[in-house]
């Protein structure tokens, strides 16, 4: 059974139809890369899965629970899928540890002591146990993004959505973040990643989705999609003729 079932999803901003009927089923443990040009609707799709945007038509079902836009359902949905953003979005007034503890205590009502233990464990998992007391300001971009991953993991989601999580990083910091993601993939975490790291998509992902103008233009195993692009749009995107 699929963990995330996206069926015929349409999304409009005013007259601009950004998603024109997207259907993708994602099984538990799958690592799906979403590639495509800027403006093709990749971010919008992830934001719909997390309920940051409402959908106009179709359905999104996560672990058997239908997406409905009221606060109770949204919260249930968001406890199942975590999200990592391009700009990290750490809470600047809290330490790394505080960032990882906050939502556990506020949303899940975990006692402070337990939340702290989980936070230390999660920061350790991304290689930042020693930065527990550092403020986001004092961390490099790569470290901030790893804290953001730890923060999402602390909620014990069934899947993580990653929206170009290395795009805002200096090139030399990309690898440390991808290494963490790769490890998560190896541990069986379900991942949906919008990415421009084609090599990473090829090596780590189980499926690649090429989006074009609000549609799934091609979908398949990375070796097929990258080696045998069938449409001119994908060939052009990949720069092969």
């Amino acid at each position: 059974m699929s963990l995330i079932a996206i069926t015929e999803v349409k999304k409009r901003f005013g007259d601009n139809e950004v998603l024109k009927g997207i259907s993708i089923d994602i099984a538990p443990g799958e690592v799906v890369a979403i590639i495509g040009r800027s403006g093709s609707g990749k971010s919008t799709l992830l934001r719909c899965i997390n309920g940051l945007e409402t959908i106009d038509e179709g359905s999104i079902v996560v672990a058997g629970a239908q997406f409905l836009p009221d606060e109770v359902h949204l919260k249930a949905l968001r406890l199942k899928v975590g999200m990592i953003f391009q700009q990290f979005n750490l809470f600047p007034h809290l330490t790394a540890g505080g960032n990882v503890m906050l939502s556990q205590m506020v949303v899940k009502k975990v006692p402070k002591k337990d939340a702290e233990a989980v936070a230390r464990k999660m920061l350790d998992r991304v290689g930042l146990a020693h930065k527990f007391d550092a403020l986001p300001d004092e961390l490099s971009g790569g470290q901030q993004q790893r804290v953001a991953i730890a923060r999402a993991l602390a909620m014990q989601p069934m899947a993580l959505l990653c929206d170009e999580i290395t795009s805002a990083l200096d090139p030399e910091l990309v690898a440390e973040v991808l290494a963490v993601v790769k490890e998560l993939a190896a541990e069986g975490m379900t991942l949906v990643m919008v990415t421009h790291e084609m090599r990473f998509a090829r090596d780590v992902c189980s499926r690649v989705v090429f989006m074009h103008q609000g549609r799934v233009h091609e979908i398949g195993a990375p070796e097929d999609v990258f080696a045998n692009p069938r449409t001119p749009e994908l060939r052009q995107f990949l720069g092969v003729q």
Binding site: L52, R78, L79, M83, F85, F91, R151
Partner: peptide
């Protein structure tokens, strides 16, 4: 992004 990050963590 602060609203979105906190929303994605399940906060009301």
């Amino acid at each position: 992004g602060q609203w979105e990050a906190s929303a994605s963590l399940g906060m009301g």
